[in-house]
Amino acid sequence: MRVLGFACLWIVLTEGDVSSAFLAVGAVASAAAADALLNRGRGVGPLSALRVIRVLGRVPLDSVKAGIDVAIRALRPSLPIRPGLVRVPIDVADPAVRVATAYLTTVLPGTVCVAVEPGGLRLHLIDRRRDVGAQVAQVAQDLERALRGGRHG
């Protein structure tokens, strides 16, 4: 699965140039070896490809929304921000899912994750009156389903 991913990336990088095929074996193999060394015993289990695509597919849209949101706040003369820190609990056991959630939260409008803690995330809000708990919980749930698709059904 990983090897397939690396191979796809290689093809994209080399623009499908066949002359690189010989080297491709070596490069993909060494990347996979590095991956195996670093991630020994940390497999995330079978992925649910459809759900992964659904989660990742939202990234560009969220990014646009978030960018517009910040741009408006930065450019408005009144500077409408009320920054603050909150702690958001998320109910997932797997640390990998927590980290992935942290990354996605940073792409969402209004939130930047500043720390990953055992029981949840530490978020910085550009407008602390907003309640983001439900939104983050939803992201975490989606991710868990995507990454643990095989187990939770």
């Binding site: 990014s63 646009v64 978030a66 960018g67 517009i68 949101d69 910040v70 741009a71 930065a74 500077l79 921000i81 920054p83 820190l85 940073t106 792409v107 409008p109 209004g110 930047v112 500043v114 910085h124 550009i126």
Partner: peptide, 18 residues
């Protein structure tokens, strides 16, 4: 314009990335 470092992170991670 943002007053503190953490707020500036929003500008960095959102507007610049977009």
């Amino acid at each position: 314009r943002f007053p503190d470092t953490l707020s500036r992170l929003h500008a960095l991670t959102k507007a610049d990335n977009l």
